[in-house]
């Protein structure tokens, strides 16, 4: 494990915890796309089925369990506990436009045509676009709470760090996984516009608001 991979995992964890704490402390999930959260929970559940079939390390298994539990807890908070604060009117991205093509693609382009491998591939492709409902929601309302932007920053940073990790692993271990790399690139690129706004606005103490 190299430092970029570890930093990526930590930043992923920070993102998930920021979101959970934000919802819990403010007793509100205003501005959060429940649809993106359902997609992320689906990503973890379909990817980490190997918890039952292979043991890699204590670190690996614990992180998987933490990611799955936190993402399901987030979905629970948005759709049950704090449902009254959920801004469903603005969370109108058509999720089937993501899930159907991603499902089709995972059947067509995968490492091995087996159920586990197809589900893993599905989760990789789905993760790369799962943030779109959230970004769509922000573009609709034209603004985001600062804490939500921190969440997005760490979520974007995570896959960016994984990209560096993959370059590292290719050079030093000869390891590469083309499916993960291409999807990770797509995922990171989707955050670029947001990163720009984050650096030029949020880090200078301004609220993230889009020009009308």
């Amino acid at each position: 494990m190299n430092i970029f991979r570890l930093a990526g995992d930590v930043s992923h964890l920070v993102a998930i915890i920021i979101l959970l704490l934000k919802i819990w402390k403010t007793r509100s999930c205003a501005g959060i796309s429940g649809k993106s959260q359902i997609l992320f929970a689906s990503v973890f559940v379909t990817r980490y089925l190997d918890l039952f079939t292979i043991f890699i390390s204590l670190y690996n298994s614990s992180m998987k369990i933490i990611y799955i539990s936190c993402s399901i807890a987030t979905v629970y908070l948005v759709y049950f506990k704090f449902k009254a604060t959920y801004d469903g009117n603005h969370d109108t991205f058509r999720v089937e436009f993501l899930v159907v093509p991603v499902g089709g693609l995972s059947f067509l382009v995968n490492h091995d045509f087996s159920p586990m491998e197809i589900l893993w591939t599905f989760s990789i492709y789905l993760e790369s676009v799962a943030i779109l409902p959230q970004l769509f929601m922000i573009s609709k309302t034209g603004e985001a709470e600062t804490i939500t932007t921190h969440y997005l920053f760490f979520l974007g940073l995570y896959r960016g760090l994984y990209l560096i990790n993959w370059i590292w692993r290719y050079y030093f271990e000869g390891f590469f996984d083309l499916i993960a790399i291409v999807a990770g690139l797509v995922q990171t690129v989707l955050y670029c516009d947001f990163f720009y706004l984050y650096v030029t606005k949020v880090l200078k103490g301004k609220k993230l608001s889009l020009p009308a």
Binding site: R5, D9, H12, I54, I56, K64, H111, D112, D177, A180
Partner: peptide, 10 residues
């Protein structure tokens, strides 16, 4: 090729 299928990343 089987090695490709071992997923040690998250």
């Amino acid at each position: 090729d089987n090695e490709q299928l071992v997923k040690d990343e998250l």
